[in-house]
Amino acid sequence: MSSSPLPGDASNEQSADRTGRFVRQPNGRIRPLSPHLQIWRWHVTMAASILFRVTIGAMSVASAIAVGWLAALAFGPESYAKVSACLGSPFGLFIAFGLTVVLFSFILNGARHLFNDTGRGLTLNSANLLSNVAVWAPIPLGVLFWVLLFATGRVSL
């Protein structure tokens, strides 16, 4: 047992820790609160983890757009022309660029997770490197991809 009294300890309330980092559970046990940003300093691995969860949600939006595009294709040339005009507008291209960045982020974060699942890349330096790649590389990859699309004439304004 710990030599210092815990918060809520009735035997020595005066010297109890008043940081608010402990809580009494319904069974009477004292447990530390889950760490949060006030306790842990921000780190790139945290950003990579949060970004991966965000990309999963964004890929759901991309899937809904793809299903809408397929539905328009199934409903005939008039519906397809309307959806193509919407997707080809500057706002549609902006959304497509964002979803391209999300796709690259999703792929890189997934590769990072797959690599970590093999038991490799778990040292501090390699985890930082992989996380930095997963966080920052999708932006230049997305820009490069869209520059190539515009340069080859596959997309235009």
Score class of each variant (00 low, 15 high):
116 N>L: 08
116 N>Q: 15
116 N>A: 14
116 N>P: 00
116 N>F: 12
117 D>R: 15
117 D>K: 14
117 D>T: 13
117 D>N: 15
117 D>Y: 13
118 T>L: 10
118 T>D: 12
118 T>Q: 12
118 T>H: 09
118 T>M: 12
119 G>K: 15
119 G>S: 14
120 R>G: 09
120 R>K: 14
120 R>T: 10
121 G>R: 11
121 G>Y: 08
121 G>M: 01
121 G>C: 13
121 G>L: 03
122 L>V: 13
122 L>W: 08
122 L>S: 07
122 L>Q: 15
123 T>L: 12
123 T>C: 13
123 T>R: 14
123 T>W: 08
123 T>I: 06
124 L>F: 12
124 L>T: 14
124 L>N: 15
124 L>R: 15
125 N>T: 13
125 N>A: 15
125 N>H: 10
126 S>F: 06
126 S>N: 10
126 S>Q: 14
127 A>L: 13
127 A>D: 12
128 N>F: 06
129 L>G: 04
129 L>V: 14
130 L>N: 06
130 L>K: 01
130 L>F: 05
130 L>C: 03
130 L>G: 10
130 L>M: 13
130 L>R: 01
131 S>W: 06
131 S>T: 03
131 S>N: 05
131 S>A: 15
132 N>P: 00
132 N>E: 09
132 N>A: 15
133 V>D: 00
133 V>S: 04
135 V>M: 08
135 V>W: 04
135 V>T: 07
135 V>D: 00
136 W>E: 02
136 W>H: 13
137 A>N: 03
137 A>Q: 05
137 A>V: 01
138 P>K: 12
138 P>W: 03
138 P>A: 07
138 P>E: 11
139 I>S: 09
139 I>D: 01
140 P>W: 04
140 P>N: 06
140 P>L: 02
140 P>A: 09
140 P>M: 05
140 P>D: 04
140 P>R: 00
140 P>Y: 01
140 P>E: 05
141 L>C: 08
141 L>A: 11
141 L>T: 06
141 L>W: 01
141 L>G: 01
142 G>R: 07
142 G>N: 02
142 G>V: 05
142 G>Q: 05
143 V>I: 14
143 V>F: 07
143 V>T: 07
143 V>M: 04
144 L>W: 05
144 L>D: 01
144 L>T: 12
144 L>A: 15
145 F>R: 04
145 F>A: 12
146 W>M: 12
146 W>Y: 08
147 V>L: 08
147 V>T: 05
147 V>H: 02
147 V>M: 07
148 L>T: 02
148 L>M: 05
148 L>H: 02
148 L>I: 08
149 L>V: 04
150 F>K: 04
150 F>V: 08
150 F>D: 02
150 F>R: 08
150 F>T: 03
